[in-house]
Write a protein that binds this DNA or RNA. Sequence first.
DNA 1: CTATTTATGTGCATAATGCACACAATGAGG
DNA 2: CCTCATTGTGTGCATTATGCACATAAATAG
Lengths: 161, 161
Amino acid sequence: MTSRKTVQNTHIEAPFRVLHSALVDVTVFMNRPQADEAMLREAGISLDRALFPLLLGIERFGPIGVVDLADRAGRDHTTVSRQVAKLESLGLVERQADARDRRVRNAVISPKGKAMTDQVDAARMRMAHALFEGWDPADIEQLSRLMRRFADGIATMTKDD
Amino acid sequence: MTSRKTVQNTHIEAPFRVLHSALVDVTVFMNRPQADEAMLREAGISLDRALFPLLLGIERFGPIGVVDLADRAGRDHTTVSRQVAKLESLGLVERQADARDRRVRNAVISPKGKAMTDQVDAARMRMAHALFEGWDPADIEQLSRLMRRFADGIATMTKDD
DNA sequence: CTATTTATGTGCATAATGCACACAATGAGG
DNA sequence: CCTCATTGTGTGCATTATGCACATAAATAG
């Protein structure tokens, strides 16, 4: 049933497919702005669709320059430049000169911006608690460990292209 | 170092945080249209940024109606309606009447569209092979299994809201 | 020192997005 | 059967986001 095609790696293809489809499902979920927006509205906050992922990116990867951020977001650097400026004008991020490269104006999250992303994190954490109810703690630990390793692998691959 | 705050669930919070940050990293990667676009260009195909995720969604979840698809994509249904029409005019998806609800015009992927998504899948599979080099097959199997379970949990939660 | 690359940003045309609205089909309640 | 609210789909229109061409400043290569 599972052994088809070239026999060499078939035994490893099946888990790949399972993993891939699971990742697609999770990615779709993580992308849902409705969830985030609903949470933020609940907290009395509102932010444009396009701005929010960038705020999360700055929180996670900052201090980060416009070009790097644009690369991560998959958008043109000019678009990101404008959006970061907007986030700055909203007081959600701050910009600071890079110590080693004076061209770079790194974006870092402001206390006000951090308060927003913290709320999103907290809401996700609450969901996680509900989601993992009934799981064996060892499985949770395994999943976390392997996902981290997987993400690190991706980061390594991405770096050397 | 890791034990702070309320002691009650601290032992389970740490894996959550690790998992969350790993998921964010992976999500960022999966969202990169550059990767997909590069692959498609390599194959002589070109498709608009906004259209491609929808094509992947239709391939994965189709036959699916505009409203459902819009909900998954996190965009307004009117936007998705136009984009699906565009995909249809490009011959990448087909539309068919729903057997039970004559209002619904389900979108399904066409052979031509499938050929495109297959190429993306194949490219991702190649990357996976490189990524998992040196992994213990048992770990790969574990990761796949647990991620699938995790994704199913999310799907269940999402369904009942 | 000159040439090239890199990081950031602006002007402008184009595409995407969402709201208001419309219409057809469904389903609930009388 | 007949309203009437709900749901799935789609169009007109104003707004916003996006990316290309281009510009500037700083770093880097030669």
